[in-house]
Computed example of a mutant assay.
Amino acid sequence: MISVDEARGQVLAGLQVTGRETVPLANACGRVLAVPVTARLAQPPADVSAMDGYAVRAADAVQGARLSVIGEAPAGHPFAGSIGPGQAVRLFTGSFVPPGADTVLLQEDATEADGTVTVNESCVAAKHIRRAGQDFTAGAELIAAGRRLTARDVGLAAAGNHPWLQVYRRPRIAILATGDEISLPGEAIGPGGIVSSNAHMLAAFVTAAGGEPMVLPIAGDDLAAISAGADAARGADLLVTTGGASVGVYDLVQPGLQARGLALDFWKIAMRPGKPLMFGRLESLPLLGLPGNPVSAYVCAVLFLGPAIARMSGQPGGAPETERARLTVAMKANEHREDYVRATLERGEHGWLATPFSVQDSGMLSTLARADALIRRPPHQEALAEGAEVEILRL
């Protein structure tokens, strides 16, 4: 068995970044940027007023002064002339500041009547003006390549005058659930059968991670069915299987895929849950084989599939980020495998408080759904007392 870190390193090393595509700005949120976004203009393009008021010269705008209002400049309609001594132009938020003015007299600090504005509060030069290029200048890099775009990034790209963005194509992840005993939700359940949760759970995980799931028909415990499932995954960027990866008589994923040229990089990880995880390749198609137990499958998705999607999407990938928490109960010593323990979280006075579920069976989806985090325990970690600090992966 190899370690989690070593296994993840081998998975990431065996993947390729997807190609680029151009998408409308409105569809770019959540995508990974392939080419840096540079500003096509300055923002703001000229000096603009940050408030409603009057464009004036600070030397004229002293308390009690009366200035002649020679025009107005609503946003989008700049004043055509310039301001001279003793003059003012009515402005609104976003209005271009006319040449000659060096400050803005707030409307609440002024009184206008009969074409004259009286200054009730003296002005300071450069007050309430957003200078041209204050946000960014033309040609400046706004967003670096490799960033997963947020709504804020979309707004910045729009301000930089980009209607389209080049992003990496979403990785296509084929998902093949295996086993005679499983059926899809809503279908008839045969004798000794159960409902398959893994395919839908993993499809939702792939979507949330930025991939495009392709859920394949269930493959029974039959070599030909598993081989046919692999054939259906052609065109995907990664094939993910669930079940059939252990050592039982009916664990047929490996022999079924060997008929399609499976080259196995590793099998079995020193972790719990999720020991029977494998990674290899069907010619040019990478394969990630997850365990059949749903909790094991999900934990492996967090540790391996999520980073794999990030790598294929143009990001580095790597280990999921961790935080620290304190235990609300004691935990016994860990054995030789790296352990990932489902737990709930609550905010304490000094940070997170983690409470592990008393039962950690890898078939219990109910506790997985209620879990807020996984407590990561290194191999051979000593017993931990209540209040001990632990490393967590928030879910």
Results as ranks from 00 to 15, higher is better:
Met1Trp: 01
Ala7Phe: 02
Val17Cys: 12
Gly19Asn: 14
Pro24Met: 00
Leu25Gly: 03
Asp52Met: 10
Val56Trp: 02
Ala61Asp: 03
Gly64Gln: 11
Arg66Val: 08
Pro74Phe: 14
Pro74His: 13
Gly81Trp: 00
Gly81Arg: 00
Ser82Glu: 10
Ile83Leu: 12
Gly94Cys: 03
Pro98Gln: 15
Val104Cys: 08
Glu108Phe: 10
Asp109Asn: 15
Ala110Cys: 08
Asp114Asn: 15
Thr116Lys: 11
Val119Gln: 04
Lys127Cys: 14
His128Asn: 15
Thr137Pro: 00
Ala138Tyr: 00
Ala144Asn: 05
Arg147Val: 14
Ala151Met: 15
Asp153Glu: 14
Ala159Leu: 15
Asn161Asp: 14
Arg170Phe: 09
Pro171Glu: 13
Leu184Glu: 12
Gly190Arg: 14
Pro191Val: 09
Gly193Tyr: 07
Met201Tyr: 02
Phe205Ala: 09
Ala228Gly: 00
Ala230Ser: 14
Ala232Arg: 13
Leu238Gln: 04
Thr241Gly: 03
Gly243Val: 04
Ser246Lys: 03
Ser246Leu: 06
Val247Met: 10
Gly248Thr: 05
Leu257Tyr: 05
Leu257Lys: 01
Phe266Pro: 04
Leu277Val: 09
Phe279His: 10
Leu288Ser: 00
Leu288Thr: 00
Ser296His: 09
Ala297Thr: 13
Tyr298Ala: 07
Leu303Cys: 02
Ala308Thr: 02
Glu321Cys: 00
Thr328Cys: 12
Ala330Ile: 08
Lys332Met: 09
Ala333Thr: 11
Asn334Thr: 06
His336Pro: 07
Arg337Lys: 05
Glu338Trp: 00
Thr344Met: 08
Leu345Gly: 03
Gly348Met: 13
Gly348Ser: 12
Glu349Lys: 12
Glu349Arg: 11
Gly351Met: 13
Phe357Thr: 10
Ser358Ile: 07
Val359Trp: 09
Val359His: 14
Ser362Tyr: 13
Ser366Arg: 12
Ile375Gln: 07
Ala383Lys: 11
Ile392Asp: 02
Arg394His: 10
